[in-house]
Amino acid sequence: MYDYYLGGCHNFAADRAAAEQVLEIFPDTGVAAQTNRAFLRRAVRYAAERGVRQFLDIGAGLPTQGNVHEVVRPIAPGARVVYVDNDDVAVAYARRLLPLDGRTVVAHGDLRRPDELLADPAVRANIDFTEPVAVLLVAVLHFLPDDDEPYAAVARLRDATAPGSLLVLSHLTLDGAPPVPTQQGREVYRRSSAPIVPRTHAATARFFDGYELVEPGLAWLADWRPDGEPHAAVSHGYGGVGVRR
Rank of each mutant, 00 (worst) to 15 (best):
L23E: 06
R45Q: 15
E20W: 01
V154N: 00
T161A: 15
R158T: 11
P114T: 05
P150F: 01
L144F: 11
I196R: 01
P230M: 05
L174D: 15
V168Y: 00
T29R: 01
Y189R: 07
R95C: 09
V72N: 08
R103Q: 14
L40D: 14
R80K: 15
P150A: 01
N67P: 13
A47D: 15
F207R: 03
Y5C: 10
G51R: 06
P63G: 07
P114N: 05
D28G: 03
P27S: 04
Y211M: 05
R80A: 10
H108L: 15
H10W: 14
T200Y: 02
V91T: 10
D120E: 14
H69W: 04
A233M: 05
T200Q: 04
M1A: 01
P77K: 13
H10T: 15
G102I: 00
A107R: 08
A79T: 13
A119T: 09
G240D: 13
A90Y: 05
Y189Q: 06
V214G: 02
R190V: 09
H10M: 05
G7T: 05
A177D: 12
N86S: 13
R186Q: 14
L166P: 07
D175M: 12
R199S: 09
G51D: 08
F12A: 00
D85V: 08
A48I: 07
R103K: 13
A19K: 08
V234W: 01
R206N: 06
V89Y: 06
N36R: 13
P178Q: 12
R73Q: 04
L172M: 15
E49G: 08
Y151A: 00
A177P: 09
Q65P: 07
A139R: 12
R95V: 10
T204Q: 02
A32F: 03
A17K: 12
V31A: 09
V89H: 11
A153N: 01
W220T: 13
V180A: 15
A155R: 05
S192W: 10
P77H: 13
D110I: 03
L169H: 14
V154H: 04
P163H: 04
V138D: 04
T130E: 14
F129N: 03
H236Y: 14
G164W: 10
I196D: 00
D28P: 00
P226K: 10
T204Y: 06
A205G: 03
A155H: 02
P114L: 04
T29V: 04
H201I: 00
H236C: 06
G7P: 05
L137I: 05
R41L: 12
S235W: 02
G61M: 13
A205M: 11
H10G: 01
L144A: 14
E20C: 14
